[in-house]
């Protein structure tokens, strides 16, 4: 009921002003990884393209900074707030304040534990689905032939590591020709990806018994590719390489034939968010509670060099 009221008021207040420049506040977690830097860059690009005045705030990994930023956005009377929350809990009161000020909030990339009525929508990827896409690619590629797979997992216990492992397993389920023979954590880093891959190669007859590598992120795959090369094998042909994220460097490897496929975790969360906001501002269209971004599969046939060029300046 309250939500309906908010919506109506917002429509009345803003409906006519949709054509003029909107102001959106964006509270970003920080810049802890290349992916997040790219997310920030893309959000700014998207805002510029749409003529939106973006107010950016870097929280440096602290929730209190984010809460302060949101309060400041409310005080400035922005038209909407984008929030990439650093933790899942503790957002209720500040989200209620935004609601009382009739400012819609869109969550990017991560979820919160608050009631869905407190925010307009959330944009994010489905980690399990990403693993499924990678697994499906392998199923299609080996086409029934026997394949022994080694897996480089993310940081033990982290949700991307768990979900991407489960998704992959779900996709290869029922395809008895594909078997995961070794699975170890590479902590999402290049160095450990390389080190663990070296041990896989040692353990699997110098790599001769390995048909494919599944890495939970591209960085580990890039480290592993170096280990495979140094072992005298050809990554991409002797051992198939599939990973997740679609960072620029994996496209470089793909263009050289050393990696086969990657599943994109798009840093463009802002695009769908702005689309939903535009619709909402224009005629009060309520978006669904969760907008899932596309987990697109890229292979060597997708002009990897062009993809690399398109991404290299995003701050990865």
């Amino acid at each position: 009921m309250k939500r309906l009221l908010t919506m109506t008021v917002a429509t009345l207040a803003l409906g006519g002003a949709a054509a003029s420049a909107q102001t959106v506040g964006f509270s970003q977690i920080g810049s802890e990884s290349g992916w997040r830097a790219a997310e920030t860059t893309l959000t700014q690009q998207q805002a510029e393209e749409r003529g939106i005045d973006l107010r950016f705030s870097d929280a440096q990994q602290r929730q209190e900074n984010q809460i302060a930023a949101i309060r400041s956005f409310i005080a400035q009377g922005v038209d909407a707030i984008l929030l990439a929350p650093v933790v899942a809990t503790g957002w209720d009161s500040v989200l209620e304040e935004a609601q009382e000020a009739e400012i819609p909030v869109v969550l990017l990339d991560r979820m919160v534990d608050s009631d869905p009525s407190l925010y307009l929508t959330a944009v994010g990827s489905d980690l399990v689905h990403e693993g499924e896409v990678a697994g499906q690619w392998l199923v299609d590629t080996v086409a029934g032939e026997d394949c022994r797979v080694v897996e480089l997992q993310g940081t033990t216990g982290s949700s991307p590591a768990i979900d991407r492992a489960n998704g992959f397993r779900a996709a290869i389920e029922g395809h008895d020709n594909i078997e995961i023979v070794r699975s170890q954590t590479g902590n999402f880093t290049r160095t450990e990806g390389k080190e663990v891959m070296e041990s896989f190669l040692q353990a699997e007859n110098g790599g001769a018994d390995i048909c494919a590598l599944y890495a939970h992120n591209d960085d580990m795959a890039i480290g592993a590719i170096q280990a495979i090369e140094e072992a005298g094998l050809a990554p991409g042909s002797d051992i198939l390489v599939v990973s997740i994220d679609a960072v620029p460097d994996i496209f470089l490897a793909m263009s050289e034939g050393k990696a086969n496929a990657t599943v994109e975790l798009t840093p463009n969360m802002a695009g769908p968010a702005f689309d939903a906001l535009d619709a909402y501002w224009n005629d009060g269209t309520m978006p669904p509670n969760f907008i899932q971004t596309e987990s697109r599969l890229y292979t060597q046939s997708d002009d990897p060099m062009a993809e690399y060029e398109a991404r290299r300046d995003l701050g990865y």
Binding site: S33, N187, F188, R190, T191, K194, D249
Partner: peptide, 13 residues
């Protein structure tokens, strides 16, 4: 460490 992975990873190195 940098030479090994042909890159410098400030977060993890």
């Amino acid at each position: 460490t940098a030479a090994d992975i042909r890159g410098a990873d400030a977060n993890n190195a």
